[in-house]
Design a protein around this nucleic acid. Structure first.
Lengths: 166, 166
DNA sequence: ACCAATCATTGACTTTCTCAATGTTATCAA
DNA sequence: TTGATAACATTGAGAAAGTCAATGATTGGT
């Protein structure tokens, strides 16, 4: 059990309660590694990604292309380099991602009039429609991921993460 | 080039805060994507991993092998399958990881007397020494990652993450 | 006008992930 | 006991993701 849980985390003897996320290796939860934020974020990311990919699969989308599409729909008109910086992608990865989405007709490259080296990403109408549908699914994924938290805790978590990643 | 020159990117709308982690694309922080916990954890994981790998590099370790070593040192005597489940690794990845660490002499496979199919991982004395040094570095990485948070906030973040991943 | 730097792109390469097949061992039922 | 089924570690193949250097076009600075 969590050595110090000032909160209500009454870790039940895992049977009566609702479905926990655990996978049967709960006896490792007290190890030092399992307490590291780096480990916890890695785990959260793997689980979150898997779930989101699953919910997006019927739209023939995964979270990476979704993220690119989302930025193209954001109204911020990112260049490919900016997008790569923001999403932690190598420029060559951005090229590949954008290629596929452009072939699919959901976004387009437009030369930046202020700097003809760079290309601005914009969503098409079809892209905005796809994004609307996809966003529903990622929100559903997020809701499932955060189901164990109260609304206040969700906001807290978001704020704390924002503080450490920006 | 030296890893980090003092980034002159004074991007933030000159608010009050100290030096941020930002990379010059702060104008995207208000987009819907940037508010998603899934996105934030992905970002935290990338940054955290990169930093930890850097700090571990002089020990010829990366975070994945470190995690395996940490579990071998934990006293919980995990089998390879359990370790894979806990660290979200495919069994074949576990084999490769354990192979290298065993060749290096920091851990060993031992047949489980209760089930001769499975193999229990145990750290050697050299392994425990390596782990001690490596843990210092990952703690340092964690400290840097969380430098923008108060101690109370760090505990909060940890507790919230634990709730969503277990 | 020149020089160095930046952007998108390509291609090569490494690392990581995913999956199916296999030999060994365990579990359960007839 | 025997036989069927499943779990474990391992191998190997293939896909996906990440890393890196080189290049042409364009920019900004001097």
């Amino acid at each position: 059990m969590p050595p110090s849980s000032p909160t209500t985390s009454a870790v039940a003897p895992a049977s009566a309660q609702q479905d926990r996320v655990d996978d049967g290796v709960g006896r490792f939860q007290q190890t030092p590694l399992a307490q590291e934020v780096a480990f916890l974020t890695a785990r959260a990311r793997v689980r979150g990604n898997a779930l989101a990919n699953e919910l997006l699969s019927d739209l023939d989308l995964k979270v990476r292309p979704f993220a690119v599409l989302a930025m193209a729909c954001s109204g911020t008109n990112p260049s490919q380099r900016e997008l790569g910086d923001f999403l932690d992608l190598d420029p060559s990865q951005v090229v590949a991602l954008v290629d596929r989405l452009e072939e699919r007709g959901v976004l387009q490259r437009e030369p930046d009039p202020r700097d003809r080296r760079s290309k601005i990403l914009t969503a098409t109408e079809a892209g905005r429609e796809l994004y609307a549908q996809a966003a529903e699914r990622t929100h559903e994924a997020e809701a499932q991921t955060l189901q164990g938290l109260t609304p206040a805790e969700r906001d807290q978590l978001r704020e704390l993460l924002i503080k450490i990643v920006y």
